[in-house]
Amino acid sequence: MTVSKPILLAEDNPRDAELALAAMEEHHLADKVILCHDGAEVLDYLYCRGHFKTRLQGNPAVVLLDLKMPKVDGLEVLRTIKNDAALRPIPVVMLTSSREERDLAESYALGANAYVVKPVEFHQFLKAVKELGVFWGMINEPPPEGASRTTGRST
């Protein structure tokens, strides 16, 4: 159960971020979380550029994506990830307030691995974030590093 890969959380709202981190804290996952404040930062992280130029190589265990974010929104980030052979294996979970049908449909059409609506009730929110962190950060086996590259070559 050693967790080496980080959890990338894209959340523009600092309060939501704080609450999410509080939830992760319960399972001591908070230090694994890398917080991005908008879509552009997520892409910077994934492509190791800008602020994340000097970070350690490797993809995150999962990307928790909010839909509505400044600069580059969640769907745009998702599209970029799923269109890039090197990034495509990264699990992407939409974590959003929207229960709108078209958001759901579009997210899955673009290749989202899961779609979670943030519950209003904090205990449920806590539970949802915790379960996400535990599942994607600990239970789920992430794609091997380099698998993407072979896929990239073959396609």
């Binding site: 309060r15 939501d16 609450l19 839909l67 509505k68 307030s97 943030k118 209003v120």
Partner: peptide, 13 residues
Amino acid sequence: SHDLRAPLRHIDG
């Protein structure tokens, strides 16, 4: 759906 729910979540949270 998107924006009105967030403050509520924060209040409860």
